[in-house]
Amino acid sequence: PAHPYDRLKTTSTDPVSDIDVTRREAYLSSEEFKEKFGMTKEAFYKLPKWKQNKFKMAVQLF
């Protein structure tokens, strides 16, 4: 299930529990994912792991 970005980011005051914290981005809706990352999930997962992590750090999901 998708969760709002505000509850997934590492600085959230009301974090979602029971998620894989190493894959926070996977819980974003497709729309919100595209808004935050500027690309689709499919394109994101084709990137090298280090680049994925760099993007995730930039949007507080790492």
Score class of each variant (00 low, 15 high):
59 V>C: 08
13 T>A: 08
8 L>C: 14
38 G>K: 11
41 K>T: 05
13 T>G: 06
2 A>E: 15
12 S>P: 05
5 Y>R: 01
49 K>N: 04
32 E>P: 01
9 K>V: 14
37 F>K: 02
51 K>N: 10
7 R>D: 11
11 T>P: 06
50 W>F: 07
22 T>H: 08
13 T>H: 09
15 P>S: 03
20 D>G: 08
1 P>I: 14
44 F>W: 07
24 R>S: 06
19 I>Y: 03
22 T>Y: 08
37 F>E: 00
60 Q>C: 15
56 K>V: 02
15 P>V: 05
7 R>Q: 09
21 V>R: 10
38 G>Q: 12
46 K>E: 11
57 M>P: 01
62 F>G: 15
8 L>I: 07
39 M>R: 01
24 R>I: 11
56 K>A: 01
18 D>G: 14
48 P>H: 01
10 T>K: 02
17 S>Q: 15
53 N>V: 12
39 M>W: 03
53 N>C: 12
33 F>M: 01
43 A>G: 07
9 K>D: 13
42 E>M: 11
60 Q>P: 06
29 S>M: 02
20 D>Q: 00
35 E>H: 09
38 G>I: 02
5 Y>T: 04
10 T>N: 13
41 K>E: 08
37 F>V: 02
3 H>L: 13
13 T>Q: 12
51 K>C: 14
48 P>F: 11
50 W>S: 04
30 S>T: 15
36 K>E: 00
22 T>R: 08
31 E>L: 12
30 S>E: 15
22 T>W: 06
34 K>L: 14
54 K>E: 14
57 M>S: 07
10 T>A: 04
4 P>W: 07
57 M>W: 12
55 F>M: 15
58 A>C: 09
23 R>E: 06
29 S>K: 04
53 N>D: 15
28 L>G: 01
43 A>K: 09
34 K>Q: 15
9 K>A: 07
56 K>R: 11
6 D>K: 00
47 L>C: 03
27 Y>Q: 04
51 K>D: 10
35 E>K: 06
10 T>G: 03
9 K>I: 12
51 K>H: 07
48 P>M: 00
47 L>F: 04
55 F>A: 14
16 V>L: 11
50 W>N: 05
49 K>E: 09
23 R>H: 11
14 D>H: 10
46 K>C: 14
16 V>H: 06
62 F>K: 12
38 G>W: 08
53 N>H: 08
28 L>S: 02
7 R>Y: 09
42 E>C: 11
34 K>D: 08
34 K>G: 10
17 S>M: 13
19 I>W: 05
31 E>T: 13
6 D>I: 00
9 K>T: 14
51 K>G: 00
2 A>K: 15
18 D>Y: 03
28 L>Q: 02
19 I>K: 02
24 R>M: 09
56 K>P: 11
23 R>K: 14
1 P>L: 12
5 Y>I: 04
29 S>R: 06
59 V>I: 09
44 F>E: 00
15 P>G: 05
14 D>P: 05
37 F>N: 00
14 D>T: 06
27 Y>L: 02
23 R>C: 15
40 T>L: 08
13 T>M: 11
25 E>D: 02
50 W>Q: 03
41 K>S: 10
26 A>C: 11
18 D>S: 08
45 Y>K: 03
27 Y>V: 03
47 L>D: 00
